[in-house]
């Protein structure tokens, strides 16, 4: 086996990983950016990105089929890990998408549907209850806790979101970034060596690239 890759982007056959890898290569031109599903290489990588696009049932199905679930849980205990979008959701306890799917349980929280949440929340105005789903576009992220990955990014900077399911920012104890879309959603969560975002840094122009740059330089230390 050759030397460890600088960053492993976990490929479980869903969606477009090209842009995540390209964006990482852009911010770290000398880094060895590897994309694949070989558990041995992921285990040895210096840092790992767990991306995701698509429906959670197919994503979790492929993660388990390729034997990547154990590796991700292991990485989540040991080295810098960045979850993106469905990758963040996959780290949660459970998602209500596709009639309910068990996720990797790295965080104890639930992933819920905007439509259900809007219907339940009696304090929302009728305009808020009619908000469009998916939540698609550029929204502000309030940095409610400082974190090394926020370095060089202004509070309330805009990032690109596209999702119909979310983690509630108020109930999630690991929230470090909040976005308002009818309700407060967890735009970013962090614990120890794990950072995970609901938005797409690889599609969020300068601030997104800054966050990826910060991740590539992060030693994995964080204490809130």
């Amino acid at each position: 086996m050759t030397t460890a890759v600088d960053v492993a982007v976990i490929d479980y056959g869903m969606g477009n990983l090209h842009s995540v890898a390209k964006a990482l290569q852009r911010v770290a031109p000398k880094a060895n950016v590897w994309v694949g599903d070989d558990p041995a290489i992921i285990r040895r990588a210096n840092r790992v990105v767990y991306p995701g696009v698509g429906a959670i049932r197919d994503c979790m199905g492929e993660v388990r089929r390729r034997g990547l679930d154990e590796v991700i849980v292991e990485v989540a205990r040991s080295k810098p890990l960045l979850g993106i979008c469905v990758g963040m959701q996959g780290l949660m306890h459970h998602s209500s998408e596709n009639n309910g799917i068990d996720c990797l349980d790295v965080f104890p929280d639930e992933v819920v549907f905007f439509g259900d949440a809007f219907a339940k929340e009696s304090c929302l105005s009728s305009a808020e209850q009619r908000l469009k789903v998916p939540h698609m576009g550029w929204n502000t992220v309030q940095q409610c806790h400082s974190h090394p990955l926020w370095k060089g990014i202004k509070n309330n900077a805009r990032f690109y979101f596209v999702h119909s399911y979310f983690v509630n920012a108020k109930s999630c104890l690991s929230t470090v970034g909040i976005t308002q879309y009818g309700l407060d959603i967890a735009a970013a969560i962090a614990r120890d060596n794990i950072f995970a975002v609901q938005f797409h840094p690889e599609k969020s122009h300068r601030d997104g690239l800054q966050l990826l740059d910060n991740f590539m330089q992060w030693d994995g230390n964080y204490s809130c």
């Binding site: 477009n16 842009s19 390209k22 852009r26 596209v162």
Partner: peptide, 25 residues
Amino acid sequence: FIPLTVGGGVRELEDIRRLLNAGAD
């Protein structure tokens, strides 16, 4: 590094897969 939508001549699932793999969002 912003979202990219591609259209024109998309007729089969294979067309979509190819475009997404090429970098379309």
